[in-house]
């Protein structure tokens, strides 16, 4: 069993196992670069549970610094749109400028807009 230290197969949680991939479940890693900044997707990794995912994320994505917070999420917990949906989901938004809040005058001195 080359995939795990003790030969166990970990299933469940909500982590995804890629079909044909005997490795541990996959987790998505999000890193925050500064307080108040958004957590941004950094990549993915394998881990058997959340604590180990957090540790692996620290070692793989935060060891060179520049990170103040980490999120790890089982890949299987993410619901993604499918490419075939892109027409109905996204195309209608591209020709409706009135949906953009660009017709307002923002008072001077307002921050964070």
């Amino acid at each position: 069993m080359a995939s795990s230290v003790d030969g166990r197969q970990f299933v469940g949680d909500q982590a995804a196992t890629i079909p044909g991939d005997a490795q541990w479940p996959v987790w998505e890693v999000f890193t925050q670069g500064a307080q108040g900044a958004p957590h941004e997707h950094a990549g993915s990794l394998h881990a058997v549970n959340a604590e180990q995912a957090l540790q692996n994320a620290r070692d793989v994505y935060a060891r060179r610094g520049g990170v103040v917070s980490l999120w790890v999420i089982p890949t299987g917990a993410i619901t993604a749109s499918s490419p075939s949906d892109s027409g109905p989901l996204f195309d209608p938004g591209s020709d409706k400028p009135y949906r953009h809040p660009q017709f307002y005058n923002v008072p001077r001195g307002v921050r964070g807009v």
Binding site: S3, S4, V5, L45, H46, D59, V60
Partner: peptide
């Protein structure tokens, strides 16, 4: 290491 992530750790 037993897996890539642990090798890095």
């Amino acid at each position: 290491g037993p897996i890539l992530e642990e090798d890095i750790a």
